[in-house]
Amino acid sequence: MMNYYPKPMSRLIKELAKLPGIGPKTAQRLAFYLFELPRDEVVGLATAMVEAKDSLKFCAICGHLTDESPCRVCQDTTRDHHLLCVVEEPKDVIALEKTREFRGMYHVLHGALSPLEGIGPEELNIKQLLNRLQTEEINEVILACDPDLEGEATALYLARIIKPLQIKVTRLARGLPIGGDLEYIDEVTLGKAIEGRQEL
C-alpha cells in the first residue's frame, strides 16, 4: 500500500501508525486530514509537539509531569505538606486534582510492581519516596494505586516498608460508583463495598 503514495506521504503515514491505538487505516486518514489542513495549523501542531517534548520533565521532588521543577503543587505553600498521596502515573495526579477535594502533596511512582514486565521496586520511584518520608514532616501517606492486581501488590509492598517509619498509612476506599446501579456491579466490587460499609 505504501508504495502507491509519494514518499513524504508514506513517511507521514508510517510515523502516525507508530502512535498507540492508531492502525494503518487510521494513519492514512489522519495523514490526508493533515494534508488538507491550512499550513499554519499544521505548523501549530508540530511546534506544540516539539515544545511539549522539550520543555516537559518530571518534578525532582514528586515525579509529576511539569515544565518547571519543583512543580507547582510542590511549590504551593497553601497546601497541606504533611499529607502525601502516592499514585502510579502523572495522569492520576490530574484526576485527583480535578476533584478539588485533595489539598495535600503527591508522589508519582511511574508504574506498579509487575515481575512479568520486569518492574520491581528498583524500577519505581520508591527510593525518592523513602527519602521524602525521612526528610519531610509527613503524618499520613495515602496509597492511591490502581485497584488492580499489580496496583494492590504495590500498595501492599509500600505499606510494609512505610509502617516501620511510624507514619500512618491509608488507602482509598473501594466500592460503588456514584450513580451506578447496584444490580450491575460486579461481585468482587460489591463484596469490597460490603466489607467497607459505613455506619450512618
Binding site: S114, P115, G120, R160
Partner: peptide, 28 residues
Amino acid sequence: ALYQRNALLKRLKEGARNLNQLEIWSQR
C-alpha cells in the same frame, strides 16, 4: 497473580534479590 509470582521466582532463581517483594506476591 500466579504468572506474576512465577515471573518473580524465575528472576530470583537467576540471581535477582528482593525477597520482600516475594512475600507480597505470595500474599496475593
